[in-house]
């Protein structure tokens, strides 16, 4: 069992997975942020590889990417920062980024480095399923890296079942068909979507991302799925005047209550 499966075998409800952009607010904050998120009770972490052309992200994450790139963050810098991360951190760690930086780094070298550091999975929102299965799946599998795939309210059922076969981690449910800012509450249509996917009885657990920013939205998704992925709200918290620890502690309570 990989680390992500272990997590879900121990805990099926109220999973909180947090996204932050590596190299933001400061280049060398990465390791401290990861350690503090674990210390304050976060279950899993998605470390964002900044990219200047993030098709799937809203303004807050785009802004953090711009700052991180200006700070000098890149995939190789990130890997060197994470070299000893498994000495202090035991929760699952996932890298999230766009396909081009990974291609230029080399897919095999990327997977090999992930394995040696102890990265459990990867989310590449612009890598389509058929490209993954055709070109890269065998490499990911060779190094034991889980590729986590996204679905949206528009994704067809047959495709969701295919995605379910391709991964042994979780399915990332994008909460809506638009990237329009964070909402204070999910609407009926979205709740219906959560219920619909949940009733498909997929083998992988479900986590909902996009639009979770407070206790209310967190509770809403936890009612129907295994938990949530929170990104923009964490990035906003990291920009506050306090210390990293104060900001992270306040942020986690603002979601979990």
């Amino acid at each position: 069992m990989n680390r992500i499966q272990q997590l879900f075998s121990k805990k099926q409800k109220q999973i909180l997975s947090v996204y932050f952009t590596a190299g933001f607010p400061q280049l060398h904050d990465t390791v401290s942020i990861i350690e503090l998120l674990e210390k304050h009770g976060v279950d899993m972490i998605e470390i964002g590889i900044p990219f200047s052309d993030p098709l799937a992200d809203g303004n807050v994450i785009q802004h953090s990417s711009t700052v991180a790139l200006a700070n000098g963050m890149s995939l190789s810098v990130l890997f060197s920062q994470l070299e000893h991360i498994r000495k202090t951190v035991s929760i699952p760690l996932i890298l999230m980024g766009y396909i081009n930086p990974v291609l230029q780094f080399g897919v095999e070298k990327f997977c090999e480095t992930c394995q040696s550091i102890g990265i459990d999975g990867v989310i590449l929102p612009d890598l389509p399923l058929h490209e993954y299965t055709k070109e890269y799946k065998h490499i990911f599998e060779q190094y034991g890296i889980q590729n986590i795939l996204l679905i949206s309210p528009q994704t067809e059922e047959s495709r969701i079942r295919m995605i379910d076969q391709q991964t042994q981690a979780f399915i990332y449910m994008v909460s809506s068909s638009s990237t329009t800012g964070t909402k204070s509450k999910f609407n009926d249509e979205q709740i219906h979507y959560f219920k619909r996917i949940s009733s498909m009885n997929l083998q992988n657990p479900l986590l909902v991302g996009f639009g979770i920013s407070n206790t209310e939205t967190f509770a809403q998704v936890c009612e129907y799925t295994h938990g949530a992925i929170v990104g923009s709200a964490c990035i906003k918290a990291l920009e506050q005047p306090g210390t990293l620890e104060q900001n992270i502690s306040t942020f986690v309570s603002s979601i979990k209550g």
């Binding site: 098709l55 799937a56 396909i99 929102p125 612009d126 890598l127 389509p128 490209e131 795939l149 996204l150 679905i151 949206s152 528009q154 994704t155 067809e156 994008v174 068909s177 638009s178 990237t179």
Partner: peptide, 9 residues
């Protein structure tokens, strides 16, 4: 088409 799933559909 290297795009997120929302655009894929």
């Amino acid at each position: 088409a290297f795009i997120p799933p929302v655009l894929e559909s």
